[in-house]
Amino acid sequence: MSSTNNSTAAQKPRTRFQRIWDSDVFFSFRRSPVTIVAALVTFILILAALLAPWIAPYDPFNPASLNLMDGFTPPNSESMMGNYFVLGSDHQGRDVLSTILYGSRISLFVGFLATLFAMAMGISLGLLAGYRGGTTDAIIMRIADIQLSFPAILIALLIFGIARGIIPPSKQEGMAVWVLIVAIGLANWAQFARTVRGATMVERQKDYVSAAKLIGVHPLRILVRHVLPNVMAPVLVIATIGLALAIIEEATLSFLGVGVPPTQPSLGTLIRIGQQFLFSGEWWILFFPAITLVLLALAVNLLGDWLRDALNPRLR
């Protein structure tokens, strides 16, 4: 079967925007309502988190504005003090909506940075292993394999434990977010490395690499300019799914009580707090942060799933 677009070679080159709009990836995006909704939800949640200090009705972390008399107000009602809470308030009288806005800020911050960290580390080690082969490859991939067989949560817990042992207690609270980022990042690099390495091994056999070697292009330049752009498609997919994973991992760690400190709660911490009140009927303290977390993870996962199918047309 031949392709039907041989004639395009005779046409004028298209602008970048036209190419993107017309590309198969974007075409499948326009045709999938679920994906459009997912993208929209992701966008709104990220925007809301970014704008939290300006759009949140209360500042939940300013002790001066807190009043215990506001505590346990159900959603959509006024407290005894006459304050109105859309999604209710928690045991300390903090507005649940505001804590969610600030909480997703921390969740997303940790998620993004941890994914970036894992990506940078995974891509460089994967490129190196795939291109060099031999012993370098064997060592890097063996480590990745071992690590991949342990759940990320365990690795992250371990790193967290080590950090607790090394960092003096006085600084632990301030460093907690960064420890979390490193722990989750280190737990997730292997997936990137494995994918990039596999793709690199395929690409380096291709003759466009031979053609560059032939004229004496430096190996590093070949890796960065030739190979890297060609292995980015699967990386993008993993990064998207990895973001969802990192957000969930952060929430899990915080839920287990080893994540961010309660003074700076992420969505996971909020759920941990809310769990205490679930059995006594104050369901909203748990429910709304939980729904936000699931919505965020689901939307990002849906995007990743769509991206995987769109970039790999064989799977349809």
């Binding site: 003759d207 031979s210 053609a211 032939l214 030739h226 060609n230």
Partner: peptide, 22 residues
Amino acid sequence: SQERRQMVQMIFQDPYASLNPR
């Protein structure tokens, strides 16, 4: 050497793999 490198070139079998698609 640099000048010799310029003198030798190669054409490959698979025109789909010998041009970087990006």
